[in-house]
Design a binder for these strands. Sequence first.
DNA 1: AATGCGGGGAG
DNA 2: CTCCCAGCATT
Length: 347
Amino acid sequence: MGFSDIIMDWYSINKRDLPWRNSHDAYKIWLSEVILQQTRVEQGMPYYEKFVANFPTVFDLAAAHEDTVLKLWQGLGYYSRARNLHHTAKIIVKEHQGIFPDSFEELLKLKGVGTYTAAAIASFAFDVVVPVVDGNVFRLLSRYFGIETAIDSHTGKKVFNELAKELMDQRNPAIYNQAIMEFGSLMCKPANPNCEICPLNQSCVALKTDAVNKLPYKAKTTAVRHRFFSYIYIRYKNRFVMMKRTGNDIWKNLYQFPMIETKKAMTPKKIMKDAIWTDLFKNEHYQIVNVSQEELHKLSHQTIHAIFYEVTVEKALDLDNEYFWVSAKHHHQYAVPKLMENFLADK
DNA sequence: AATGCGGGGAG
DNA sequence: CTCCCAGCATT
């Protein structure tokens, strides 16, 4: 038995019952694949269910407001996925009559659809023979064949894609692609893989050479950047002030309190000299009723040092620029970063 | 070719 | 703590 036969046999017995596997609907497959980009299956699952329930077809998604889409995506991270998802839904409706293209090349043209996702949709929905190479496949192939080429290099991507292509079961691209990812995910795990019971353990190079823990090889390690956010939580009766984050930064198009970013940790005394205070309050009276402890919010390559200034005012300020009042009853419709959600959950 | 983009689970 | 997860867009 060859590599692909072993993978296929293992999969037929050990596969999980995942909701998107019960469909050949390109829309649902696309939806699930975008949700699962850099996201574990268990984490993405409830979001998939929510999106299918709220947007049963691509027409429903295309007709929605971006705020609604982002709100449903809230908490999942990498929000450009949600923005691109919405954008692409509108393209599919306007330019493709609601029908997804059925070739790898055409799928690749869609925003938010890269080589992996295009291959996944093409094979799962349309039985196109094109290999999926995700994190699971990189790991499995690098270990089984003992390939030390860095998976995050240009040549690495080419090498592994070529290899994955040669190994494919040409007759069952949809099932085979699911199978190799499932195998990588459940058997050839990043830490503590199940080598003892692995059906490939007789011919695995990494196992033979004691290199399982060294592969796959990655070239880059990204440095963590520290940022200091001072949020101003301005309350008047049951309302508070919010704004939309624009600009190319984290949490684009999500909402937050007015805030000041500084390059270093800053004392309240210095923060309060920032122009934002006169911008917001002008000559109105305000009172700082609480200053939170610094809270660390860790992202993959940033650590946000957050402090919340809780301020009360005696009348509803006239707001300009991007600021606006929201009531406690209505603020839930705005998508907010996890950091904001955690703060608001205590209110 | 290199960098930025979230949040959470596992070890 | 560190690593990594059904990656992609941008430069």
